[in-house]
Simulated assay, not measured.
Amino acid sequence: MSDDKNLRDDLNDMLGDAKEKANEFAKEAKESASEFAEGAKETFASGENKKILAGVLGILFGGLGIHKFILGYNKEGGILLGATLIGILLSCVGIGILFVWIPGIVGFIEGIIYLTKSDAEFYNTYQAGKKPWF
């Protein structure tokens, strides 16, 4: 009987220790997740990294230069938008098709480049380094 009682006491002690360790681990995991979420929220809420937005807009609406305006490249965005609008106006002549397709292809390629770069590389190249083309 005393062996059973000792075994039960040992098992209860081990169970208590396991519960304590699990609670400590859960608390640490919760704190880490909270810190990570806060950091991610600060990065994207403040608009520091616009990689995904610029990349998707470049792929979908590259000819309009919206992705350039998002990154703060107003002159380059205006060039793409102007070329597209001139191409639309000249499309009745036939040569305008080139003016519509070329900015679209440039925007598409830039969108793919934006999305394939790492977040840090994108930020350093296009936002901090202000590299306007490709």
Rank of each mutant, 00 (worst) to 15 (best):
I52G: 04
L85I: 15
C92D: 05
G82T: 10
S118F: 03
T125N: 03
L90Q: 06
I79M: 12
N23Y: 05
D13Y: 10
T43A: 10
D13E: 13
E48T: 06
K41F: 11
L60G: 01
D4W: 03
I88E: 01
I105W: 07
K21A: 12
A26G: 00
I97G: 05
T116V: 03
D4H: 07
N23C: 00
T43C: 06
G16Q: 08
G129Y: 07
P103N: 04
F25Q: 14
H67L: 08
A83M: 15
A120W: 01
L81D: 04
E42C: 00
A18I: 05
I52E: 07
E24R: 14
I70M: 10
D3N: 09
A83E: 04
G58K: 02
G111Q: 04
L90N: 03
G78L: 06
K41Q: 09
I105H: 01
N49I: 13
K27P: 00
V100P: 01
A120G: 04
L85N: 02
N6E: 14
L80S: 05
Y73V: 02
F134T: 06
A40T: 06
E76D: 05
Y73C: 02
F99M: 07
E28H: 08
K130C: 06
K50W: 01
G63A: 05
L89N: 03
I112M: 07
G96E: 13
E76C: 01
L57G: 00
E121P: 01
M14T: 07
D10H: 10
F36D: 11
A29R: 14
I113M: 09
L89G: 11
N74C: 01
T84W: 15
I66N: 00
G16F: 08
T116L: 03
R8T: 11
G65T: 04
E48I: 03
A54H: 08
V93L: 09
F25D: 13
M1E: 03
S2M: 08
I95C: 08
S91E: 08
K130D: 12
I70E: 09
G62H: 07
F61M: 07
I97F: 15
I109S: 00
G104N: 04
L53N: 02
G129I: 08
G104K: 00
L53K: 09
K27G: 08
G63S: 08
T84G: 08
G65E: 05
G39H: 11
Y73G: 02
D17V: 03
C92A: 13
S46W: 04
E24I: 15
A29G: 02
E121H: 10
K21T: 10
N74E: 11
G58R: 02
G39E: 14
D9H: 05
A29C: 06
V56S: 01
F44C: 01
G94Q: 10
I88Q: 00
Y73L: 02
E24L: 14
A33W: 13
Y114M: 01
M1H: 03
G87F: 09
V100Y: 05
F36H: 09
L60I: 15
F25G: 00
L53E: 12
K131E: 13
G111W: 04
F36A: 14
A120I: 10
I88D: 00
F69D: 02
L81K: 04
E28D: 12
A22L: 09
T43E: 13
